[in-house]
Write a protein that binds this DNA or RNA. Structure first.
Lengths: 145, 145
DNA sequence: CCTTGAACCTATAGGTGCTAGAGATATTAG
DNA sequence: CTAATATCTCTAGCACCTATAGGTTCAAGG
């Protein structure tokens, strides 16, 4: 049995985060010691490691919830899990594309800075002028989680 | 003079967002009509456009606050504005690098999916196993805003 | 056995950057 | 004048935690 601190250290997740996951139902409430402290079985480490890894890959908690419920029923088709992963892959690619465009514009901004005064500052100027933007509407800066 | 709706439409910013910016001090409180509705001068459009563009570029509101205060004092060196832009550029590049690594791992996950059952699903399996990860510690999935 | 200090407990509030809703008032078009 | 639209304030909610306060329990050393 693991205390919450050991579990967190083993999985690389902070203690309050574990309690948060329990609160939102991502982790089942574990048993308690006589002194009311959480005691986790080994299996909890697997589950938490799974969650942490998926978070590292950028999966939102709702997707992780789905993946966990899938993995609890191992006889079914993995098509759903595959779809979730593909959705995430598409989201990541969209974010990369958006960020690459931002990178180009930022680079242009700093390249043009002549280190003069604010009155002639390209950085300030470019920010006040949308005319260089490829796509003006929509597409807020990488709003996705 | 512009109503809040016209201002928002002109700058591409939603009305509640404008009120939010006023609330947090990014926009000065404008004058009011006799019926207590906000009335903005032309200059407010420039300022809001500046904010919106900077947000599109991924600048956090705090950085925008700094940039605005810089542009309010046009006699000073633009070194500070340049530094903010450079910091932002570095952050964007770091995020791109991180996301590109995620993309590779996700791609590997879905490529290996044999469309069988959950029991043999690579997606589920990979998520439960950190051994494929290049860098296990720290580096949460692109936590930056 | 007792003390000290770390780790644990609950509960609440804060952070970012908005967005949505309720319920009331103002303006504008027909 | 009326009806539709836009505005007002206020509050709460979203994701995903993180931090703080004030208290209890546990493990080790003397």
């Amino acid at each position: 049995m693991l205390t919450i601190g050991k579990l967190g250290a083993a999985a690389g997740v902070k203690v309050p985060t574990i309690r948060y996951y329990e609160q939102i139902g991502l982790l089942p409430p574990p048993g308690r010691s006589t002194g009311n402290q959480r005691l986790y079985p080994r299996a909890a480490l697997d589950r938490l490691t799974f969650i942490r890894h998926a978070r590292d890959l950028g999966f939102p908690l709702e997707a992780i919830r789905d993946l966990l419920s899938l993995s609890d029923r191992p006889d079914q088709s993995c098509a759903a899990a595959d779809a979730i992963a593909r959705t995430q892959l598409a989201a990541v690619r969209a974010r990369i594309a958006r960020l690459t465009a931002l990178e180009a514009e930022l680079q242009r901004m700093v390249a043009q800075c002549a280190h003069g005064t604010i009155a002639s500052c390209r950085v300030i100027e470019v920010l006040g002028d949308h005319s260089h933007c490829a796509d003006d509407d929509h597409a807020r800066a990488d709003a996705a989680a």
